[in-house]
Structure formats: C-alpha cells, structure tokens
C-alpha cells in the first residue's frame, strides 16, 4: 500500500528536519550551556540516523564519543571558563547580509554536487565481502578497520596520542572543580563501573562478528574513566608516571609490532597470514581498547597528572 512506503519517508523527513533544527538552535542560542546541551541532543539524533542508514558501528561510536564524550569535554571547559571569568560577555547576535550572500551559492553548489553523485552503487562492498574469509573476522567494518585499512587505524591511534601530548604540553591539571561526593553517587559508581568494564570487554570480543570493536569498547572505558574523574577520584601518583605512559602508548606500539612481525617471513608491513589474522586482530584490538579508554579519560582530565598548574 502507498501508506506503508510513505511512513518511512515521513520518519526520515522528520528526522532530517529535526537534525537541521537542532543544529541551528545549538549554534544560535545565546546561552552557551543551552547550546552544548542541544549539541548533545543533536549527537543522539545523529546516532539514531546512523541506525536508520544501516551503520550500527558508527551509531555506537557516535553515541559514546560524538555525543557523550564531546559533550562532557565541552561542559567541563565551559565550567572552567566560567570559574575563571566572572564577567558576562555580551551575547552576540550575528546576521550578516554579505555572509549570507556568499554562503547561499556555496550551499546550492554543495546540494547540486551531492545530488549528482552516483547512488546505489555497491562501491567496495563486493570486494570486501569476497575477501572477508582471509581477514579472520566476519564483521566487514572491523575487517576494513583492522585489516584492509589497518594503516589508517594505526595513524588514528597515533592522532589520539598526539592530541593528548598537546593537551599535556599546556601544563598540569587545571584547578579541579568541587567533586560531588555522596552516597548516591558512590552507589551509582559501584554499580556502573564494573558493568561498564564488562560491557567494554563484551564489545571488544563481539566486534569480530557483530557491530562492535575496539573504538566502541574503548569509548565505553573512557566513559567509565570520565565518571570516576567527575566523582573526584584522583590518580595515585605511583600510577601516574610510568604505568600510565606504558598503557597510553601500548595501542600504537602493539599495532606497529603486529605489522612488523611478519616482515621476516616475507610479507608486507601490516599484512597478516590468514590463519593468524583473527587472533592478531583481537590482540591489537585489546591493546587499542585499553589505550583508547585511558587516552579519552586523560583528555577529559585536561592536563598532565602529577603536575600542579601554577596559577
């Protein structure tokens, strides 16, 4: 019936319109706190859109990292900005006719280009599916991330590390906000943190055959770390020196070593033999999960632990 094909179209139209509306409200609201909260809601709607577009791995990554962690980082920075600067800056109301006249051709050009791109081409899906047996996993996205395009993932882990080094180069942890401690938060943490660690392990394990994988698992671990930091947990100084740094670089190091190890038997860098590929991918993903989780939590901390910022 016509109604049955109309309903999904209606849903998609509503979703698309709410995305645009939320983005517009987030960008133009005068209160920054409201803007960030609207941005988090926008991220959650994007996760719903990814599910609608048959991309469950992307949906998990967006919900945890894009909406959750980015929102937490923005709110923490806003709190620190407000703590350091008591004066209220005047809200900006910006509408520039010149800018609108310049942007309008840009948007029409973009829409035209996007609409003329070829649609419904399988792209690389056929190639990926044909060679899936030699990759050692059955989830095509994990195969692409860890095997076909493993080089990109290696460099992505390095980008995370470099961003953390950049944040650390600014000095120690900024003045910590008063942590809310109390029985309810403690109970919540006691229940949630073990559950989050278990869910991260599950996502890591299941990533070989179903939506999941190292980045989703690492972001759940990062969320657990952010929760601990919000409750006022301090990293013990014994752990803040060498062990922390070892875990942080273990993702990149493990990946590089796994790529090099088979060069002696005549293969290329990052080429695994099909019989070992599954085990190797799991090993790399385990190291990457731990390293991604700790890196994301350290990014939330906002400074080098163990060093007091002199201000």
């Amino acid at each position: 019936m016509a109604a049955m094909t109309l309903l999904p179209l209606l849903f998609d139209t509503l979703l698309g319109l709410s995305l645009i509306w939320l983005a517009w409200r987030a960008l133009t609201s005068t209160d920054l706190f409201q803007a960030i909260v609207l941005f988090i809601a926008f991220g959650l709607l994007m996760a719903l859109t990814w599910v609608r577009l048959d991309a469950p791995d992307v949906a998990m990554a967006e919900a945890a990292i894009g909406a959750g962690l980015t929102g937490a980082l923005l709110l923490a920075t806003l709190a620190r900005l407000k703590a350091n600067n008591k004066t209220k800056s005047a809200p900006e109301k910006k509408f520039s006719l010149l800018l609108t006249l310049i942007i309008l051709p840009v948007v029409t050009g973009l829409v035209y280009v996007v609409l003329t791109l070829p649609q419904n081409t399988p792209g690389l899906a056929i190639l990926v599916a044909e060679n899936l047996k030699t990759t050692g996993v059955t989830n095509p996205v994990t195969a692409v991330l860890l095997n076909y395009r493993g080089y990109d993932t290696l460099l992505e882990l390095a980008v995370l590390l470099v961003a953390l080094l950049g944040v650390w180069s600014f000095g120690g942890v900024p003045k910590p906000h008063e942590a809310y401690s109390g029985p309810v938060l403690n109970m919540l943490l006691r229940l949630l943190i073990p559950l989050l660690i278990m869910v991260a392990g599950y996502l890591l394990w299941v990533g070989a055959n179903a939506p999941g994988g190292a980045f989703q698992a690492g972001s759940v671990l990062g969320a657990a770390g952010v929760l601990l930091l919000l409750a006022g947990w301090q990293l013990s100084t014994r752990f803040a020196e060498l062990p922390l740094r070892i875990i942080l670089v273990s993702g990149v190091v493990m990946f590089t070593m796994a790529g090099i190890v088979f060069i002696v038997s005549g293969r290329q860098f990052l080429e695994y033999p099909p019989s070992f590929a599954g085990a190797f991918i799991l090993l790399i993903e385990a190291a990457a999960t731990l390293s991604i989780g700790i890196t994301l939590a350290a990014l939330f901390l906002g400074g080098r632990p163990g060093l007091r910022r002199h201000k």
Binding site: A55, L69, G123, A125, V141, Y148, V162, L299
Partner: peptide
C-alpha cells in the same frame, strides 16, 4: 551497505574528538 565509508566515518569521529579536546585546551 558499503563498509569502507563506515570505517572512515568512525575514524573521523575519533579524530574529531581528539581535535576538539586539543582545541578546548587551547581555549582555556
């Protein structure tokens, strides 16, 4: 669904959060 753009977008999301974290430290 073609998995290669999905992998690229996951990479993009992670790189975006790293860049945002560095940018926020710069703002401070």
């Amino acid at each position: 669904p073609d998995p290669v753009p999905h992998a690229m977008v996951i990479t993009g999301i992670v790189v975006a959060v790293s860049a945002s974290a560095l940018a926020l430290a710069l703002v401070l």
